[in-house]
């Protein structure tokens, strides 16, 4: 069956703000006819070229490899040159709101100051650290198996869609964030790299590192290049244990505590796990909640702790399938 190119009429509201002349930001509305071929960048270009030349946004390559043009449409982070307008209409209807990735960091319209993003990116040394000969006589061999470890981490184009969608960044400005973590993993998993331990130490700092991730999967959802940053964050966690970089703290003990709890009970001993993670001193801060929970029947007595049936089987699995040590 032959089809012709479909078009739809939509209303686009674009965030506008020029720090030189505007006191407050505002939304400007444009009515456009868009076709099934159009991506968000086509819409922005048409607004700029046909309606308002002063509309400002970053763009360069126009085919999803430079990472300049990420914006938010109806709060969904998108790479403007890749996201089809028709797909967005399916999601949000015929009124689309185009925002900068982060409204607090706007320089002009959709252009933001990405300094925080780049500073954190720099912090993980986003380049190969290796003592490579200036003019080598043969290549530094990386086998297909080794490349597989790097996986999709190398596809990152630093567009910032994940970073500016990360809820931790919003409340903790120190957090390194998903893009830089994925980049760190790209090099900690490269057999030619000599800075593995240093990088793992950087990303496992409390307050800024991987342990502060809330595992919301926003980064995996939003990434236009399928880098799956949360998967790389998980692997960085694992590498800190494998390489002996993990220090004993509430976060590492919490992760390891799951194994002990499962081995003893099958199910978790939730109270025991918190105690194991926090230690006796750390427990103090949880007392008010613990009292409330106890009053409301949320803490089982030790003799009532749930235990899995076939617990011996679980103990055996923990014994034979464990691959990590701490």
């Amino acid at each position: 069956m032959e089809k012709s190119i479909q078009t739809k009429n939509i209303t686009v509201k674009v965030f506008r703000f020029n720090g030189d002349t505007d006191v407050l930001p505002y939304y400007k509305e444009y009515k456009l006819e868009v076709s099934q071929e159009d991506v968000v960048l086509d819409v922005l270009n048409r607004i700029k070229w046909e309606h308002s030349g002063s509309l400002s946004y970053r763009r360069s390559c126009r085919h999803g490899i430079c990472g300049s043009c990420a914006v938010k449409v109806n709060n969904k982070g998108v790479l403007a040159c890749k996201e089809r307008v028709f797909d967005l209409i399916d999601l949000f209807g015929d009124e689309l709101v185009i925002d900068p990735l982060n409204k607090q960091r706007v320089i002009k319209d959709l252009v933001i100051d990405k300094k925080d993003f780049w500073d954190k990116y720099d912090a993980v040394q986003p380049y190969l650290v290796a003592d490579v000969e200036e003019e080598p006589e043969k290549e530094n061999l990386v086998t297909p198996d080794e490349v597989e470890k790097i996986a999709d981490a190398d596809y990152c184009i630093q567009c910032g869609a994940c970073y500016y969608s990360c809820p931790v960044i919003e409340v903790n400005p120190e957090f390194i964030g998903p893009a830089a973590f994925a980049k760190a993993y790209r090099f900690t998993s490269d057999n030619r790299d000599d800075a593995k331990i240093e990088r793992l130490e950087t990303v496992s700092q409390m307050g800024s590192g991987v342990w502060d991730c809330v595992k919301c999967f926003e980064c995996a959802q939003v990434c236009p290049k399928d880098v799956n940053p949360i998967d790389k964050i998980t692997r960085l966690h694992q590498q800190t244990f494998q390489e002996g970089v993990a220090e004993s703290n509430v976060a590492t003990r919490h992760a390891v505590g799951f194994k002990h709890s499962i081995e003893q009970h099958g199910f978790l001993d939730e109270g025991g796990l918190v105690f194991y993670s926090e230690g006796p001193l750390g427990m103090v801060q949880h007392i008010p909640e613990a009292v409330n929970m106890f009053k409301n029947g949320k803490i089982p007595m030790p003799w009532n702790l749930p235990k899995s049936k076939n617990l011996e089987e679980i103990k055996k699995i923990v014994k034979i399938s464990s691959t990590a040590k701490f």
Binding site: D20, S54, I107
Partner: peptide, 9 residues
């Protein structure tokens, strides 16, 4: 766009 700020036009 007459501004001196990120003037892509």
């Amino acid at each position: 766009d007459k501004s001196r700020l990120f003037n892509t036009e």
